[in-house]
């Protein structure tokens, strides 16, 4: 489905495709993005996470030159934004805060118009070439057979697919998608995920912002976590999801197990004992050989949700009356089994 990307695309192998330094945006008194140093490696599937109002969309808008940074710099595909917008943006496909379309036109005409509006999209394009580009994009998002009804009459999911198709026009080597699966059903989400993975396998760098952790967990190779405008964590998913070095032992006799294991026991709850151990098999053998029954043994891994809840506050969209403004009520469920910090 996706031919290999054109070799020599800027950022394909040299350096990060996105690099920001001290990127800051204020809207009046609100600091939407606060000194973000972000690097997105070429060829990655990067997930920009964060609670509501943490500044994800504002970041995306600055990277695309829609919003002017208050201070700091941004480079996309190796060139400064927004100064080099004219040469950068033709190589970027974007979805920003929901899809949009001219409501009176059918989806196909919408894409044709968009294609014609773009760089070198004018009269010199052979109509066949334009039609092929549009059909390819529609096919990728599963709208190939869409009829001539105007977008006004589209369902939410169809609009979302059309928005993604618009981002895919002309096969950009970098996709920046803000909440790409909003409004899609589980099957649709799966389809889009597979599409993005296959595009990525063909060399496209995918940046998506979301607060749907499951989506990011299933798709991304690296994440950046934003909280109240700041980038509080960037890490490879492999590292985040790596074993925490602890093993959870399920046993009908937790007292015996705890006595036997002594100092390495870190937590006890009901019939489980959490132990610091590098070798679960050895641990199992040790316990069983001393007559402690083991009903289950699992290597502890953090879920993305635990990481995120631990590292970020509640969304900036909560305004509780007490304690002027932002609530930290959600701090209570920021616990999770692990107490240690995940960052190196």
């Amino acid at each position: 489905m996706n031919a290999p990307r054109v070799p020599g695309d800027a950022g394909a192998d040299d350096g990060p495709v996105i690099r920001t330094e001290g990127l800051t945006k204020r809207f009046g008194r609100i600091v939407a993005v606060d000194g973000v140093d972000l690097q997105v490696p070429a060829g990655s599937r990067f997930g920009l996470l964060g609670p509501n109002g943490s500044g994800k969309t504002t970041m995306v808008r600055m990277l695309l030159g829609l919003v002017h940074a208050t201070s700091g710099t941004a480079q996309v595909l190796g060139e400064p934004m927004p100064r080099a917008a004219a040469s950068v943006l033709p190589r970027v496909g974007a979805l920003v805060e929901g899809p949009a379309a001219w409501p009176g036109l059918p989806g196909r005409s919408n894409l044709r118009m968009l294609d014609a509006a773009g760089t070198r999209g004018g009269l010199l394009v052979r109509p066949g070439a334009r039609r092929r580009r549009v059909e390819e994009a529609l096919e990728q998002v599963g709208l190939a057979g869409v009829d001539r009804r105007p977008v006004r009459a589209y369902s939410l999911g169809m609009r979302q697919r059309l928005g993604i198709a618009a981002a895919l026009l002309r096969r950009p080597p970098l996709l920046i998608l803000d909440e790409p699966t909003n409004g899609l059903d589980p099957r649709g989400i799966g389809e889009i995920r597979r599409l993005l993975v296959s595009l990525n396998a063909g060399g496209t760098t995918v940046v998506l912002s979301s607060h749907l952790l499951s989506e990011v967990e299933a798709l991304c190779t690296r994440i950046g976590l934003m909280d109240a405008g700041r980038l509080v964590l960037t890490e490879d998913m492999d590292v985040l999801r790596a074993p925490t070095g602890r093993v959870i032992v399920h046993t009908p006799d937790p007292d015996a197990a705890a006595r036997l294991l002594g100092g390495v026991v870190e937590e006890r709850a009901g019939t489980t004992v959490t132990v610091r151990a590098d070798d679960p098999a050895g641990l199992n053998a040790h316990l069983v050989s001393r007559g402690v029954a083991v009903t289950g043994l699992e290597v502890e891994r953090r879920t993305l949700e635990q990481v995120v809840l631990q590292r970020s506050g509640s969304g900036a969209d909560r305004f509780d009356p007490a304690r002027n403004g932002r609530s930290r009520a959600a701090d209570d469920d920021r616990s999770g089994p692990s107490t240690e910090r995940i960052v190196r």
Binding site: L64, L66, A86, A94, P99, A100, L114, A117
Partner: peptide
């Protein structure tokens, strides 16, 4: 108001 302004600008249309 339809949101097309941002999509035209990132197409890009100067």
């Amino acid at each position: 108001s339809t949101g097309m302004l941002r999509y035209l600008l990132v197409r890009p249309v100067g």
